[in-house]
Design a binder for these strands. Structure first.
Lengths: 163, 163
DNA sequence: ATGGCTGCAAAAGTTTTGCACTTCT
DNA sequence: AGAAGTGCAAAACTTTTGCAGCCAT
């Protein structure tokens, strides 16, 4: 499976600190009848710290470093729960990997280099316009936008030309 | 795994007929040292006819209806070969399914209703601008853009409000 | 003829589930 | 207390691979 998760923008406008997001998560969990367990907190922490793109297994291994007994099922179950809750959001990348990342507040998208695999994030004002346009045209209430571009970065283009 | 394939836009401006795409495919295959087999043709035909979003298994079952001996490995191998060749392109949707669709000529994107699962396709001129903007800002040569929006369609909104 | 392709079966990998036990609230 | 959560192991899926024979070119 290949997808990404990102923590949805914290809805208050203050700088979201770790404490904020943890408390926020706890509230969200609570109001859904779910609990905050050490595993859950650990997983949330890993996802929100890790500014890299982590997959389920990466998260599992990182979690195991800090809490050796944790099981992979727990990771999967929690990713699913958090996703369902809306605390975490799936993105979909290339074929073989699932990654996870934080999205502190601003909506951003991904640009993947097909040469070196580098992932660049970018913000985009046009997306907002696009969203409005499509919402209007199709009569949808749009809740999420994900833009995924692929191409070759400057360095890889240079390398390619040399060959 | 969850991704979509779509036949990349036929590069001549004539209305792409089945014959055209098949010949085109054959040429592309040939120049890569690959062959056109009955299975390959069948799979290509299924993908290019099926205007629905089919996953690997759907394709397998449809193929089996017409050629009972075909194997799932063959479907996978072909999807991969066609993808590598660029005759087919992967998209990434929601979590649990892989779909395939045809993209006759114009770039288009997807809007998924979270209520009823309906998938609406849309074209978007802003995307071209967006592409240019990002290419320029990040120094990339951009080869593909995929936009994926989620939300609720008019009907599902009505239903929701009634509740 | 010869190198790509296929079917079959087995393997590899990822995600889900059943169950008994534990732990938040 | 009671419901949600956990670990473990097994199951369910999806995708990939090895191999012997087949078939486009």
């Amino acid at each position: 499976m290949l997808y990404l998760l990102q923590i949805i923008s914290i809805s208050d406008n203050k700088m979201p600190t770790k404490k904020h997001t943890l408390e926020h998560s706890r509230r969200e969990l609570g109001s859904a009848g779910l609990r905050m367990t050490s595993q859950r907190a650990l997983i949330l922490d890993i996802i929100s710290r890790g500014h890299k793109h982590l997959d389920a297994d990466d998260i599992y291994r990182l979690a195991r470093d800090r809490q050796p007994g944790i099981s992979l099922s727990t990771v999967y179950r929690n990713l699913q729960a958090l996703k369902k809750l809306g605390l975490v959001q799936e993105l979909h990348f290339d074929e073989a990997h699932h990654h996870y990342e934080v999205k502190p507040s601003a909506e951003h998208h991904h640009l993947v280099c097909l040469g070196c695999g580098k992932i660049v994030e970018f913000g985009c004002e046009l997306c907002q316009e696009m969203k409005k346009e499509i919402a209007c045209k199709k009569g949808f209430d749009i809740t999420g936008v994900e833009v995924h571009m692929t191409g070759y970065c400057a360095e890889c283009r240079k390398k390619r030309n040399k060959k």
